[in-house]
Write a protein that binds this DNA or RNA. Sequence first.
DNA 1: GTGAAAGCGCTAACAA
DNA 2: TTGTTAGCGCTTTCAC
Lengths: 361, 361
Amino acid sequence: MPPVSISADSHPAVSSPAARFESEVILSNIREVARLAGVSVATVSRTLKSPERVLPETRDKVNAAVEQAGYRPNLMAVQFRSRRTGNLVILVPTIANTFFARVISGAQQAAQTAGYRVLLCDTQGREDIEREFAELVHNHQADGVIQLRAFDPFAEPCHNLEPAPIVNACEVIQGGRHPTISLDNRAAAKAMTEHLIGLGHRRIGLIKGPKSSPLTRDRVAGYQDALQAAGITCDPALICHGDFTLQAGHDGAAALLALSERPTALFCENDEMAIGALKRIKEQGLRVPEDISLVGFDDIPFAAYCDPPLTTIAQPAEVFGQKAVEMLIALIEKKPLAERHVVLPFELALRGSTAAVKHEK
Amino acid sequence: MPPVSISADSHPAVSSPAARFESEVILSNIREVARLAGVSVATVSRTLKSPERVLPETRDKVNAAVEQAGYRPNLMAVQFRSRRTGNLVILVPTIANTFFARVISGAQQAAQTAGYRVLLCDTQGREDIEREFAELVHNHQADGVIQLRAFDPFAEPCHNLEPAPIVNACEVIQGGRHPTISLDNRAAAKAMTEHLIGLGHRRIGLIKGPKSSPLTRDRVAGYQDALQAAGITCDPALICHGDFTLQAGHDGAAALLALSERPTALFCENDEMAIGALKRIKEQGLRVPEDISLVGFDDIPFAAYCDPPLTTIAQPAEVFGQKAVEMLIALIEKKPLAERHVVLPFELALRGSTAAVKHEK
DNA sequence: GTGAAAGCGCTAACAA
DNA sequence: TTGTTAGCGCTTTCAC
C-alpha cells in the first residue's frame, strides 16, 4: 500500500492523512514539492542543500515548485535527521544587568554570522534552572552551552552521556575543565586600587559581590595586592558584602560610612553597587569626589551619566560573548581551539568620581 | 535484515550503525531501554508519558532500565513526532534595556510554569532579523511568537502557511490582527503632564521616542490632551525626537535648554532619556527640580537612584511578559482567549525630580 | 545527475 | 495492560 496519497486540489495536505490524524495542518512537505516538480524527494533535498549537484534545469523546476507550494523545510525534521540543532544555549544569571546585555549582544552577533541561533536563558543564578537548561543539549535541543557564571551545570557526570560542549565566560570556574574567557579581575582590581592609592587614599572601602563568586575572590585579591604593595594594612572592617544590586551598594555604603574611621574612597565591585553607594553618600550629605572617592567595575552605560561620572573599569563585554560563541562552535564542530583560556584586556575609565584625598583636620 | 543489532557490552550504542555512520554518538535510545527492561518501546514511551497506563511492576522495570542506560529522550525526535516544540520566541528590540529585562523575566517565569521554554531574540529592532526569528515558527522550531515592538513579522501573508500564533506586547500595532497587551500610554502621558501642569508648569518640553513608534504617538497625544484640557497651546518647538537612549536624552535636553524661552519642565518618554537629560541639565548649571522639573517613563531601577530620584511612570513590566505568555499559550493550544486586548494599569511614581514652577523675574 | 529506499527516535493507532 | 507496526519529514547511501 502506498503510504500517502496526496490529492491534487488547491489545499493538498489538508486532506492528507497527516492532517486527519494530527491536530496540526501540514501545508507542504518535501514530497509535495517533489510531486509538483516531477522529481524525487532526494532531488528536492539536494537542490536545497547542495544545488551544484543538480542540473540547472532540474534546479529551476524544483525552485519553482518550492515557490508554488510555499514550502518551508521542517527544521525539526532536518535537525532530527542531521543531529544538529544550530542552537546555542546561553545561561545568564540575570538578564537585568547591563553588562550581560552587552555580552549577549556580542554573542548573538557572532552566532548569527556563523549560522547559529542563541537560546537565552535567564537562570536567576539558580543551579537547578541552570541544570535544566543545560539539559537541552542532552535532549538534542541545542548543540552547546555558554555559562556566564562560575557553576558547572554538568558537574555531576551523567555516566554514559557524551560530554556536552560548554564554554565558561565572564565569571569562570577556577581550574575548571572547560574552556574559559575571562578578565584578569585580580589585575584590574589591583590597578584600580593603585589608582586610588596614587591619589593618596589609605582607607579604601570595598563592597564585594557574593561570597561564592570567584570573580569577587579575584577582585578582593587584587585590592589586597595593591594595598600590600603600598604597605597599607588591610582593615577587614572596610570590606563588606553585596550582591551586585543597587540596593546592596546603598546598604554597603551605609555600613562603611557609619564606621568611626570612615574610608576616604569606596571601591564597588560593579557599577550598579557604585550607583547605589553614590546615592547613600549623597544622602549622608557627603560629596563625591571631594569627601569621598567612588569607583565601580564594568563601565555600564549609566556610569558615564552619573553625577559625577563614575570612574570604573571597562571590560570588552561584547567580546566576551563573541569569543565564547566562537570557541563553543569550534568545540561543537570538533575543530581545534587556538587557546583554551582566553583572558581579555581591561581599561581604567577615569572619570569624575575620584580625586586626591582631602587633608583632614 | 533486522535494522539494528545492539551489542551487549558496556557501551552498546557506540558500535551501533548510527554511531558508525553519523558523527555523533547515540548513547541510548528508547529501543535500548526497551531491550534492557524486556518490554516493547511502546511501553517505555507510555511509562514516560502516562505512567498510570502501565502496571507498577512494569513501570519499575522500565524506570530501572532508564536509569541503567542513562537514557534521555531525544526531544528532537519527540517534538518532531508530536509536532510541538514547547518553545516560545520572544522578539526583543534590545536586550540592553532595563524595562524589557523585567518583561522577559515575567515571561520566563510564566513559560516555565506552563512547561514551555523561552527563546530570546535580540532583534535590534531590525525587521529582517525579526522576520528571520519569527520564521522559527514556520520551521517548526517554536510554537509561537511574542513581539515586543509594533511590527508584524508575519505581515506579508505567506500564502498557504498556517497563521502563526503571535502576541504583541508593550509596543503594540494599531488596529492589528493579533492579541495585544499594552499600557494606556496616552492616559499615562496625560496623567504625568497633568501632574506637571498642576505644579504650575506651562512650558513643558517633550523628548519623544522614534517617529515610527506608536507608543510615542500615544504618549505625545496624551501630552497634548493634557495641555489642551488646561488651555495651554502646544508649542511644537518644545517637542524633540529621541531614540530612547541616554545620549538621545542628553542631546534632546541640550536642544530644549537652548531655546530662547526655556521650558520649566521636561517630559522624557523613557527613563534612560530622562537620565541623559538630567546630566545635560546639570552640565548647564541648572538644578532639578528647582530650576527645571524632569520626568521619565518606565520606572527602571536606576530611576529611584538618580540625584534627585526621578519622577516617572511605573509599568507592571513583569506582568506584560506573564500575560503575553499566557495568551500565547492559549493561542497555541487553541483555547479561548478571555480578552484579545489587555490593557495594564500604570502608576505615577512621584519622586524628587518635580516641583512647583519657580516664579521667574 | 537522479531515483529508490532505508531509517533517524519516537508516538500512537490498533491488535492481541 | 502490552506489543506490533506504521509512519512523522527529511537526508543519505546505493544503484542506475
